[in-house]
Design a protein around this nucleic acid. Structure first.
Length: 207
DNA sequence: AGAGAGATTTCCT
DNA sequence: GGAAATCTCTCTT
């Protein structure tokens, strides 16, 4: 099924971040399969990046997965209610990762709607884009839709029910836009790096 | 369409 | 003790 292998994650983080666009994030559970095409990500560049949880070389229990081998899930809990999912990238021992910020739903849509607390459209009518955006446009929304929580912390995406699928239609370099990351105004000199990447024109980008 | 506040817990000083 | 890589609801324009 074109599952993404270790070598991909070991690429430099800014390269991996761009190449994640167009790939599918998949989670297989007893309730069914839920998946979406990645349309927006952010890179967090390790000890030198004030916005990164590993800034300054911090080795707390929370960031343990970032220090491990690439290809594992770094998942954190924020604002007292939300989970967010990162992919650990770059060389092993360098605590960098890519936050998955938005998906375009591709598989298991009714399941995702149920997990998000949304009623599926009545009478077989096709869901609107505005409706689909509520499913997986945003880092916490997509985790809820795919049932990603602390339970998946540290999972190996190369060999677990949570994984990545290669893009059927890869995103060309000139279709990728870049800009500053969201929600990190506190990061001072690192606030303005263009380390947020998204698919140009996608209506599923978080903003 | 946009602004504002509340939810609620983990992490680190 | 204070802020946080967010989201939702409510109120106003």
């Amino acid at each position: 099924m074109r599952r993404v292998k270790r070598e991909f994650f070991a690429q430099p983080t800014l390269v991996a971040a761009r190449r994640l666009l167009g790939m599918e994030l998949v989670h297989e559970t007893a309730a069914g399969v839920a998946a979406g095409r990645i349309v927006e990500v952010e890179a967090y560049m390790g000890p030198g990046d004030r916005a990164a949880h590993s800034y300054g070389g911090r080795r707390t229990e929370r960031v343990r997965a970032m220090w491990g081998a690439p290809g594992h899930a770094y998942i954190y809990f924020i604002y007292g209610m939300h989970w967010c999912c990162n992919v650990v990238t770059g060389p092993e021992g360098v605590p960098e990762s890519v936050l998955v910020r938005a998906l375009e739903p591709t598989e298991g849509l009714p399941l995702m709607a149920r997990r998000r607390g949304l009623a599926w459209p009545e009478g077989g009518s096709a869901p609107t884009t505005a409706y689909l955006r509520q499913l997986t446009s945003g880092p916490a929304r997509l985790c809820q839709a795919l049932a990603i929580t602390g339970e998946q912390y540290g999972w190996d995406l190369v060999d677990s029910p949570l994984y990545l699928r290669h893009a059927t239609a890869p995103v060309a370099a000139d279709q990728i836009e870049a800009g500053p990351r969201i929600g990190i105004d506190y990061a001072g000199p690192d606030r303005d790096h263009p380390w947020r990447f998204w698919v140009q024109g996608s209506r599923h980008v978080s903003r």
